[in-house]
Design a protein around this nucleic acid. Structure first.
Lengths: 219, 219
DNA sequence: ATCAATACGGAGTGACGTTCCGTTTGTCAA
DNA sequence: TTGACAAACGGAACGTCACTCCGTATTGAT
């Protein structure tokens, strides 16, 4: 009730995004060697597991061992420990955001929306341990709030729009507001298990459905 | 705007206080040796300085050196690094709470109240760096929220009551509410210097004065 | 002045993040 | 297929940290 409410708030810090030119071209002329790619993947996979089971303070050596690579390899891929944490975070964001498209393809709009919001709830819940690290001021984390928003907001907007066009939910809900609200719910709700959070999220969804037919049908 | 709001909230976590029997007697039969007392004081003094200048992550050795004692002495007085941090925190709370009585003796009620609230504001501001540590889950910090409240709430209550009896402020303000409100103000207001916080606190004080004559004169 | 109790300092221990470098491997041109 | 080289590899080594241990010095009651 006191620690995590800041989590989603952290994600909402209004950073100016200069966005001048970051990644100029995808492949200038370099190919990624296959073993390097394998190492990076194994590392992210192992780090995700270790962070979730032993916390973000787990030693780098433990992650290297779990990934089956040497310590040197860890530091070539992620020069700082915090880069590894940021890497795991980004990968998780990617996975969660990607699920939105998949759910859209497999379910009717409202059901896809419902499932994704619960998926997002689980994402937040597993990232509780990261909240502390996120506040360390480490520059490796500086771009994370933007990354979070840049991926989740469009994903949810698409889901909302589809459900709205199907006449299932109202059209006047801001995707980002909803992300933050659920983020706060999910992050704070550790006290009595995930069941409580699930119920609260369902309640929010019912709120979205209420009045779907009576307003916002303009779009 | 996003990190510290949790600070005072942390302090408000509703911990059950069994309070069965903690400190059974002040002095069972042991006297504290003079050199030991000197070491403890020097350590707390040095730690306060180092934490404020170098952050709470400063190495223990640095504090020991500043205090002019050996590392062994640090660890005899404060078995864990976190105990030192907690010790500094408690001492600061004591000092701030004690100032309430002193200000009461030296000033008229309303002025004493005003000065102490600004004193408290400074306390919060210098404890920003501790917010992160406070969330580490370390058991050494578990009792801090209670300590915070147990010292500050009565202090402010006394100040408020005196001002109210003098007819200067209303009588329907909860001391703890006020502590939290100012805590949030002071902790969040780092962006544009302390001046902004000072003004906001003065505004709150004016709020207390408003209507002093028209209501709550029952007490 | 004596002496047991207590506190002292700081070398030592183990674990950590990170660097360095000799060795191995993947890729591609011949 | 083969050769060669850039790239990636593993892990010993380094510096720093929190914390432990123990021989020595200080204290205060007698």
């Amino acid at each position: 009730m006191f620690l995590i409410c800041e989590w989603a708030n952290c994600m909402s810090q209004t950073k100016e995004t200069p966005r001048t030119e970051d990644a100029p071209a995808k492949e200038p002329k370099k190919r990624v060697r296959a073993d390097a790619q394998r190492s990076t993947d194994a590392l992210l996979e192992a780090a995700k597991f270790v962070f979730e089971s032993s916390g973000v303070d787990a030693p780098v050596r433990e992650i290297a061992e779990k990934a089956g690579v040497g310590i040197g390899t860890v530091y070539r891929n992620f020069p700082k420990r915090s880069d590894l944490i940021a890497g795991v975070f980004r990968r998780e964001v990617d996975a969660c955001a990607a699920d939105a498209a998949e759910l859209t393809a497999q379910h009717l709009p409202l059901e896809a929306l419902r499932r994704w919001l619960h998926r997002y709830t689980r994402f937040i819940a597993t990232k509780k341990g990261l909240a502390k690290a996120l506040h360390s001021g480490d520059p490796a984390f500086a771009s994370l709030p933007d990354y979070f928003r840049a991926n989740f907001e469009p994903a949810l907007e698409t889901l909302l729009a589809a459900s709205h066009e199907a006449g299932e939910v109202r059209g006047d809900v801001d995707a980002y507001d909803l992300l933050r609200a659920i983020g706060n719910l999910a992050a704070a709700g550790g006290d009595d298990g995930p069941a409580h959070t699930e119920r609260m999220v369902d309640l929010l969804i019912d709120g979205l459905r209420f009045g779907a037919a009576t307003r916002g049908q303009s779009a």
